[in-house]
Amino acid sequence: MNKDAIVRLVLMIGIPAFMMWREYKKMSEEERNDVKTEFTSKRFIFTGGLMVLSWVLLLLEPIFEMTWMKVISGVLFSIGMIVSSVFIWLNASSKWKAVLKIIPLLILFSIFLWANY
């Protein structure tokens, strides 16, 4: 078991999760309901949710040393990027603004593939 990977997992997942939990506890009931609604929406699950799940799988892969986790992570990240690009394209006020928003996603995707494969 890779101890460095466990420390990386705790730092990159544990600390942000604790901070989000602490802020969630400070919210009013109405704000909590808004957060629950946003996090359970199909749009969030199929865009940010898939990308975060792929990130978690990438962080878990060195701990369990299972290469299939890296492959599934790449597939989930790809699906999340494609769905995000489609939502950006469909909801943009002008297609030029949509292209300007999609270009950083494509750069992020290429960095993801370069760093992990």
Results as ranks from 00 to 15, higher is better:
residue 64 F to L: 14
residue 28 S to K: 00
residue 71 V to D: 12
residue 92 A to V: 12
residue 61 E to Y: 04
residue 73 S to D: 12
residue 73 S to Y: 06
residue 58 L to N: 14
residue 67 T to L: 14
residue 4 D to E: 10
residue 2 N to A: 05
residue 77 F to S: 02
residue 6 I to D: 11
residue 11 L to G: 10
residue 81 M to F: 09
residue 75 V to H: 06
residue 104 P to C: 07
residue 43 R to C: 13
residue 110 S to K: 08
residue 84 S to H: 02
residue 24 Y to I: 01
residue 45 I to G: 02
residue 75 V to T: 12
residue 85 S to W: 06
residue 94 S to I: 09
residue 70 K to A: 14
residue 115 A to W: 10
residue 51 M to E: 08
residue 82 I to T: 06
residue 29 E to T: 01
residue 52 V to S: 11
residue 116 N to I: 06
residue 80 G to S: 05
residue 93 S to E: 13
residue 36 K to N: 06
residue 19 M to N: 15
residue 98 A to H: 00
residue 66 M to W: 14
residue 114 W to G: 10
residue 25 K to W: 06
residue 13 I to D: 15
residue 96 W to A: 12
residue 80 G to W: 02
residue 6 I to M: 10
residue 84 S to W: 00
residue 62 P to S: 09
residue 94 S to A: 05
residue 86 V to K: 03
residue 74 G to W: 05
residue 103 I to S: 10
residue 82 I to W: 01
residue 34 D to I: 00
residue 9 L to S: 03
residue 107 I to M: 05
residue 93 S to N: 14
residue 20 M to Y: 11
residue 45 I to M: 08
residue 81 M to T: 10
residue 98 A to N: 08
residue 51 M to I: 07
residue 38 E to P: 02
residue 109 F to S: 08
residue 72 I to H: 09
residue 14 G to N: 03
residue 106 L to S: 09
residue 33 N to T: 03
residue 94 S to N: 11
residue 86 V to E: 07
residue 15 I to L: 11
residue 43 R to N: 11
residue 75 V to C: 08
residue 27 M to T: 01
residue 16 P to R: 03
residue 23 E to S: 10
residue 29 E to R: 00
residue 4 D to W: 11
residue 116 N to P: 04
residue 105 L to Q: 05
residue 42 K to V: 09
residue 10 V to M: 15
residue 17 A to H: 03
residue 2 N to Q: 03
residue 37 T to E: 08
residue 81 M to Q: 08
residue 54 S to I: 03
residue 2 N to F: 00
residue 58 L to I: 09
residue 106 L to D: 11
residue 99 V to E: 15
residue 38 E to G: 02
residue 95 K to W: 07
residue 111 I to A: 13
residue 80 G to C: 03
residue 53 L to F: 07
residue 26 K to W: 00
residue 105 L to D: 03
residue 82 I to H: 02
residue 14 G to E: 06
residue 3 K to E: 14
residue 21 W to E: 07
residue 113 L to F: 11
residue 5 A to L: 01
residue 30 E to R: 01
residue 67 T to V: 14
residue 63 I to K: 04
residue 40 T to L: 08
residue 97 K to P: 13
residue 107 I to V: 10
residue 86 V to D: 10
residue 74 G to L: 04
residue 103 I to Y: 06
residue 81 M to A: 07
residue 88 I to S: 05
residue 80 G to T: 04
residue 76 L to C: 03
residue 29 E to H: 01
residue 20 M to N: 09
residue 93 S to H: 12
residue 61 E to A: 13
residue 42 K to D: 14
residue 111 I to F: 12
residue 22 R to W: 12
residue 64 F to W: 11
residue 3 K to T: 09
residue 112 F to K: 05
residue 113 L to Y: 15
residue 80 G to P: 02
residue 105 L to S: 02
residue 53 L to P: 00
residue 17 A to G: 09
residue 46 F to I: 07
residue 79 I to V: 12
residue 46 F to L: 09
residue 92 A to S: 12
residue 14 G to F: 01
residue 92 A to Y: 00
residue 44 F to G: 02
residue 84 S to K: 02
residue 91 N to V: 10
residue 33 N to S: 12
residue 93 S to Y: 12
residue 7 V to W: 15
residue 75 V to K: 08
residue 47 T to I: 02
residue 109 F to H: 07
residue 35 V to M: 04
residue 33 N to D: 01
residue 98 A to R: 00
residue 23 E to V: 07
residue 87 F to R: 05
residue 102 I to C: 03
residue 89 W to V: 13
residue 11 L to S: 09
residue 4 D to I: 07
residue 59 L to P: 02
residue 97 K to I: 15
